[in-house]
Design a protein around this nucleic acid. Structure first.
Lengths: 242, 242
DNA sequence: CGAAAACATTTTCATTTATAAACATTTCGA
DNA sequence: TCGAAATGTTTATAAATGAAAATGTTTTCG
């Protein structure tokens, strides 16, 4: 009974299982009943899917349903997480048209970029490059191949920065980078208050064919100490929360 | 391997227990009544959850409710970490004489090496270099400066390996490395079954002034596919569980 | 202080609910 | 059209739950 191939560890050709994951990412936690009603299949079929997906590490079952497989200490399933989560999720949906098969993407250490990850399983042969431990763990839990940029650990942001990280990033060639910073001003300047984060983003940007910035509304109209780049720069795309 | 039965296992099984933890995070201390009303289950069910979660060390019960455990952050990260914890702790104590102020040490991705970390706070100005996400997080949570070697992520061992990692490791100079492998044979050969792990250890060893190996008894008398080094090599010290 | 009242917890048991296994049916590609 | 895979249905088994009774703990007040 080979329901779907497992090439490269990525779930490539079972659309219902994709929908199960999408639903899970939308709600954090979904019951077998709800899956069954939403996807118009019997509960038994859902259970079979869940069993298989759990075995492959895509999610965690609990009696009655399934729950996202994330480190719950970092990301509580309830309340706060789910609140801004919806905003960020919607913002990230604007980034989807940039995704395609067979590319290497960079995700920075912002929490926003985490919401791109669940969509990646729909594509074949995507490699994630990141300096973020959370992005690493989330992507890897979906069996997406990951490359981590090393360096000094910056605990607060759970990411790697510093001259070592910049050095390491030099050798990596990225198709599309996804990033956020803390400020996007009216005149099109993208800036941040953190020197080291800006430095590594700058380095990655230089090595990326294309860079997509994702800004929530509260980042607009500000200009901070360190400039990363400008709206008008080559290969820079800006997406703003609607 | 015994998967998660409802008692004794990791609690990712039960989504209500996540919510209990979330609530506790928010309020610090919550009564059984409040849990019951908030989560729409009987007090009896809450008590059963609390009992189970207390047994697993996630919280402390008191008459009428529960309190978040202060040392929650120091909790065992995985089941494997817990396995033979005392043995590993004792083994690591043999490594303590090698520690001193103002050095850079390497810790590999074995669970054994994690037990060295708590001792590091006694010294001034120790920097940890590692390719292990767990070592990174544990050391960093004690405010020990950490440098992570980047590379391809190997989810199973939560560490970074591959040619990139080896490349990165080239530039790092280590005073003392602490490592384990899966086999130490009678003729003094240190070997392992994992090619990529062996490769990165080999690279680090080459850049270390001194390397200390830690072996549990069950690693003795075996020889596996890939040789890392020999007992007789320069600057290699071997410590064996007593 | 000490007994009774008030309350919390544990134990036990019946009920509900979820799951998996076995079997039947449908779907879809060769 | 045939056969295998996917899905649905039925049934037994197992697990979770809540109610009630028994036990244990704290509080109150004479």
């Amino acid at each position: 009974m080979k329901m779907f191939s497992h090439k490269g560890g990525i779930m490539t050709n079972n659309s219902r299982q994709h929908e199960i994951l999408d639903l899970l990412y939308k709600k954090g936690k979904v019951s077998v009943k709800e899956f069954s009603k939403t996807l118009y299949v019997s509960e038994m079929t859902i259970r079979r899917d869940l069993a298989e997906m759990e075995k492959q590490g895509y999610l965690k079952r609990y009696r009655g349903g399934a729950i996202l497989k994330v480190d719950f200490r970092e990301m509580p399933v309830t309340e706060r997480f789910l609140l801004d989560a919806n905003k960020k999720k919607r913002l990230c949906e604007q980034a989807l048209p940039f995704l395609r098969d067979n590319i290497t993407i960079f995700l920075d250490s912002s929490s926003t970029c985490l919401y791109i990850i669940p969509h990646l399983i729909k594509y074949k042969n995507i490699t994630v490059v990141t300096n973020s431990i959370k992005a690493l763990q989330n992507a890897s839990s979906l069996h997406i191949p990951c490359i981590l940029i090393g360096g000094e650990y910056y605990e607060q942001d759970m990411c790697l920065v510093g001259s070592l990280a910049e050095e390491y990033a030099k050798d990596l060639n990225i198709d599309i980078s996804f990033m956020t910073t803390a400020a996007y001003s009216l005149d099109g300047t993208i800036s941040d208050f953190d020197l080291r984060q800006t430095a590594i983003r700058k380095r990655v940007l230089k090595n990326s064919k294309q860079t997509v910035f994702l800004f929530e509304k509260n980042k607009l109209g500000k200009k901070l100490t360190y400039t990363l780049c400008r709206k008008s720069d080559e290969n820079v795309t800006i997406l703003i929360e609607k």
